[in-house]
Amino acid sequence: MRLDDFDPTSHARDLGSGGGGGGGFGLLGFLPLLLGRGLGCGGIAILGILALGYLFLSGGGGILGGSGGGTIGAGGGATGAAACNTPERQFACRVMTSTEQTWDALFREAGLNYRPATINFYEGGATSACGYASSAVGPYYCPPDQGVYLDTSFFRELAQRFGARGDFAQAYVIAHEIGHHVQNLLGTSDEVRRRQQQLEQTAGNELSVRLELQADCFAGVWAAQNRDRLEAGDIEEGMTAAAAIGDDRLQEQSQGHVAPESFTHGTSEQRMRWLRRGLETGDPGACDTFSTGAL
């Protein structure tokens, strides 16, 4: 994927070593958490997601409620572009810039304001407003501090252990977490968590799956909006990554059998399907995982 002409994001922090949260990428597979006149297609689509989510999730409770402030935890060194201080981080920071521009444009079409997330680099473990997590959980997004947390050693594991190689596989990981950020800004994550508190675990897990698959679809929307930057093999890299971290595949590898009732991120096939839907449509409105019966 060609991103060399993007400046690294200014919304970056280096948390150092030993320095986690909800909405993880799903490396372990067991992390539950979550029309206006004159608008362009992207704006109408986002408002459509709001309306559908409102009907499905809240029953009138107000889907635009924010998730609060919070502070990033202890540790920390360089900030801004200075935190993008390795080739892997440099690429991640350019992906962040691309997502910021893409989602800012879609939000503006909808008459909304997009607030960029902060990418927090760490090694080994990190503390966020969501608590502490080791790098074993993989990349994750913390709604209260609106931060993406990434130990870039995950990219090596993604390539070596799961066979998902290439820069677009890495970009998909980050774009998925930004998908959770979009859900947070729209209030969808709050509504899912509220509903989960009222449901038994299996039903709550299904809502987590729908939240995760929508984030996959949003990652595809971002890629489609930047289609002129894709290179040969990029889409295949993304599909390989999506398949590698499906709940069914991870459970089969880790415990030798599959327990669908415990799925929180979706099967490999589902994750590929929703990523592909975003890629093929470039339309956030095509990412309504909450109103469809079949995922």
Rank of each mutant, 00 (worst) to 15 (best):
A244Y: 00
P116K: 10
H181Q: 07
G29H: 04
H180V: 12
R115E: 12
A126K: 03
Y132N: 12
F107A: 15
Q201G: 09
A224D: 11
R13F: 03
V173M: 08
A83D: 07
V173Y: 01
Y122H: 11
S128Q: 09
G24N: 07
I46C: 02
A164R: 06
T97P: 00
I235R: 05
G53Q: 09
A117C: 04
C130N: 08
R195A: 12
G187M: 11
A133T: 07
S268N: 06
M239Y: 04
G204I: 11
A110I: 06
G124P: 00
F6W: 10
Q90A: 12
A294R: 10
C287W: 02
C217R: 03
E177Q: 08
R249F: 03
A243N: 09
N226H: 06
A215W: 00
T118M: 09
I46T: 03
I174E: 05
L213I: 11
R115G: 03
L3D: 02
E206P: 00
F168N: 10
T289N: 02
L211A: 15
R277S: 04
L279K: 05
A92K: 05
I245R: 02
T102Q: 10
S189C: 01
I235A: 07
Q270M: 15
G21A: 14
E177H: 01
R194G: 01
E88Q: 14
P8W: 06
C287I: 10
P143N: 08
F218V: 08
C93R: 08
F121C: 10
Y172Q: 14
T102N: 06
S98W: 01
G68N: 05
G138V: 06
A129M: 10
Y114K: 13
Y54L: 14
T79L: 07
L186Q: 04
Y172P: 00
D228R: 14
S189D: 03
A12L: 15
V192Q: 03
Q170N: 12
L106A: 14
Q183G: 02
F263H: 08
I178P: 00
G66E: 13
F25K: 02
G62T: 10
I49T: 05
G24T: 13
V209A: 09
G220A: 14
F154H: 08
G147P: 00
F154M: 13
L31R: 05
G138N: 06
P284K: 12
G124C: 07
G23D: 03
E109I: 10
G238D: 06
L52D: 07
R271C: 04
Q198N: 03
A133R: 13
G80A: 14
E261H: 08
G61L: 14
G21V: 09
G24Q: 05
F107G: 06
A169M: 15
Y114L: 15
